[in-house]
Computed example of a mutant assay.
Amino acid sequence: MTSEQSSASRKQVTLILAIPIVVIALSSLLFVLAQKNVLNFGTVNRGSLIQPPVQLGELKPARLDGSEFMFDTPESLWLFMVVGGRDCRDACERMLYLTRQTHVALGKKMGRVERIYLATDGPLSPQLRDFIEAEHSDMTVVYADGSDFVGAFQQLPSSPLDARSFYIVDPLGWVMMVYRAADTETDTLTTLGKDVLKDMRRLLK
């Protein structure tokens, strides 16, 4: 082998070895830029992803009988979670309505999704309890500490207790997405409901 052939061979080997290093470096750079929102690759999700997702189980949500609402069990489902207080009026009521209509619209897949109302400031008022029993009898009511909830979601751009919002929780208890309506007009909620359906149909495949 001539010196020229030997030099060319070394260059070829060096190039081959360098390729994975360059790929890793570029991947790391893109990841950092995306994390810092310097680059936005877009998303097919209509809802806003919660990054990092929050583990709802760490807030120890409790059922009406005091037992803990468990995740990661054979019975665990996806959740539509509306968050409110002892009372739920106006925008909050509209979120209950939106999640109910969207749940029904899932059709055959609705059995894989459960609706919950997370109360953050103590037992429900008699009025809200009666309203849920009459209009949202399929909804499970759970309780969690309000300050803990707000602290866990402090990375959100809007208030975690925004009455025009509701959350998507996976069966493992990770709160992964939030939807927020610009207003509570019927057209706005109809459009948002369609967006939720598109996301859920992908998630429930």
Rank of each mutant, 00 (worst) to 15 (best):
D65A: 11
F153H: 07
Y179E: 02
D145F: 00
S137C: 11
Y97I: 13
V104E: 12
W78Y: 14
G173K: 10
G122W: 04
Y97D: 14
R89Q: 12
H103V: 05
S137H: 14
T102Y: 06
L96V: 05
W174P: 00
G85H: 02
L98M: 13
A182L: 13
E135D: 14
S67F: 07
S147G: 03
V142I: 15
T120R: 05
L124K: 06
R180D: 08
T184L: 04
D121G: 04
P171A: 11
D72F: 11
G85L: 02
A163G: 07
D183K: 00
S76L: 12
F71T: 00
P126I: 00
E185T: 13
S147F: 10
R180W: 09
A163V: 03
K60I: 14
F80G: 03
R164P: 08
L156C: 10
G107R: 00
Y117N: 05
G85W: 01
L59P: 12
V175I: 10
L106H: 05
T140L: 10
T186W: 08
L77E: 14
D90R: 10
T184S: 11
A182H: 11
D195V: 05
H103P: 10
T190C: 06
P171H: 03
G122Y: 02
P74K: 05
V150H: 02
L98V: 13
E135W: 04
K194P: 02
R63N: 15
S67D: 08
A144I: 00
F69C: 07
I132S: 03
V141S: 09
Y117G: 07
L96I: 04
S159I: 00
C88L: 01
G66R: 02
S67I: 10
Q154M: 14
E75C: 05
L161E: 11
L98H: 09
T73E: 12
W78E: 01
D130A: 15
D145A: 03
D90F: 09
R129W: 01
D65F: 10
T102F: 08
G146P: 04
G151P: 05
S165D: 06
